[in-house]
Computed example of a mutant assay.
Amino acid sequence: MVKSRIVLLVISLFSFWAWSCTPDDPSPKALVNVFLVDAPASWDSVIVELEGVELEIIAANRAGQLESIVIPYELADKKVDVSQLVAGVSLPIGRKEIALGTLTGIKLRLGTSHQLFQGEKGYSLPVPNQETEFPANISLELQAGISYDIYVDLDLERSIQVFKSSPLELSFQPQIAAFSTIDQGQIQGILSPTTLSPVIYAIQGSDSLSTQINGSGTFLFRLNPGTYTLFFDPKDERYAPTTRSGISVEKGKVTTLERITFSTN
């Protein structure tokens, strides 16, 4: 049911939104499309209440003045299973034509009702002080007539804290990052066996990003250009972790790895 909800959301959103021009404002604009993706954690499902995003822009025609532009999440059902947004799947939050300038920041706007599911059992995910806005930095020059895809990456692994294991008590402090695909490349591949729920880490220096596989074993990273080491943690002691080093990411290109199979211990 959760997966079908995501598919319906994507279809509905792309059917609903269209590029619209404002006839009484002939000034040049850029189109900004905002998507939600997930750096997943080891939970079956995490449902968040999504309200939209807020962009912070220094408009080219406003002499350095900072402006805030809200892009709402338009669907009536605001509950989104972000743990399904892996292996290249993303959820369109919204789109808007924006006057030219520099995009300097973005805030993810959430509601106050969030849940985590492990198996069939659900747990409340309270946010400290009932915060609803979560910022990330981004730097992007908007140029006339260009469509920009902006991704908001919600890192569930770092966002969810376990205070007590029995009974399970949790806290939710959303940690996000934002990036544009214009200057990035991708790493993709397939892991076996597909019955596992491994975590894959892309490591560069002291920084790392994580992701998981979908039902067919596929994973995908969107990364800045550079050289990375991938560490594959099977999260199952019957199998041994493995590493791939020296993987090059180039701007605008996809690096596809040969199928990776975990060895048994």
Score class of each variant (00 low, 15 high):
Ile190Asn: 14
Thr104Phe: 02
Gln188Met: 09
Gln212Leu: 02
Tyr73Gln: 01
Leu209Asn: 03
Gly205His: 04
Ala18Ser: 13
Ser83Lys: 11
Ile213Asn: 10
Pro167Val: 05
Thr132Ala: 10
Glu258Gly: 13
Thr261Glu: 15
Arg158Trp: 03
Ser245Gly: 03
Thr243Val: 15
Thr255His: 05
Ala202Arg: 03
Ile203Asn: 03
Asp81Phe: 06
Leu257Ala: 07
Lys3Gln: 13
Thr195Pro: 00
Asp44His: 12
Ala18Tyr: 03
Ile160Thr: 08
Ile176Asn: 05
Lys251Trp: 00
Asn129Leu: 11
Ile138Thr: 10
Asn129Phe: 11
Thr218Asp: 15
Leu168Cys: 06
Lys29Cys: 01
Val2Trp: 08
Val7Thr: 14
Leu110Glu: 07
Leu168Asp: 05
Phe179Leu: 08
Ser42Val: 10
Gly145Phe: 07
Trp17Lys: 04
Ala41Leu: 05
Ile69Met: 08
Pro128Ile: 05
Arg259Cys: 00
Val2Met: 10
Thr243Pro: 02
Arg238Gln: 15
Phe172Gln: 03
Gln173Ile: 09
Glu131Cys: 03
Glu74Lys: 07
Ile176Leu: 09
Tyr201Met: 11
Met1Asn: 09
Asn129Met: 07
Thr227Leu: 08
Ile106Thr: 05
Ala144Asp: 12
Ile71Tyr: 04
Ala87Tyr: 04
Leu168Gln: 08
Thr255Leu: 06
Glu131Thr: 03
Pro167Leu: 07
Val7Pro: 00
Ile200Gly: 02
Lys107Asn: 14
Gln161Glu: 15
Thr264Gly: 00
Gln184Phe: 06
Ala240Leu: 15
Gly94Gln: 08
Ile47Leu: 13
Asp155Glu: 09
Phe219Trp: 09
Asp81His: 11
Pro72Met: 09
Glu133His: 08
Ser27Gly: 00
Lys121Gln: 14
Ile47Arg: 09
Glu169Gly: 00
Leu9Arg: 13
Thr195Trp: 02
Leu191Arg: 04
Thr256Pro: 01
Ser20Ala: 12
Lys78Glu: 02
Glu131Ile: 01
Ala39Gln: 15
Ala136Ile: 06
Thr243Tyr: 03
Asp183Cys: 00
Arg222Asp: 04
Ile6Met: 12
Gln65His: 13
Arg95Lys: 14
Gln184Tyr: 11
Val34Met: 04
Ile200Gln: 03
Glu237Arg: 11
Ile138Lys: 02
Gln84Cys: 11
Gly217Pro: 10
Gly64Asn: 09
Glu133Thr: 14
Ile57Ser: 01
Leu110Gly: 06
Lys79Val: 01
Phe231Ala: 13
Gly246Ser: 12
Ser206Val: 12
Arg62Tyr: 08
Leu66Met: 14
Gly215Thr: 10
Asp77Trp: 06
Asp44Glu: 13
Ile190Cys: 07
Gln84Lys: 12
Ile213Glu: 05
Thr256Ala: 11
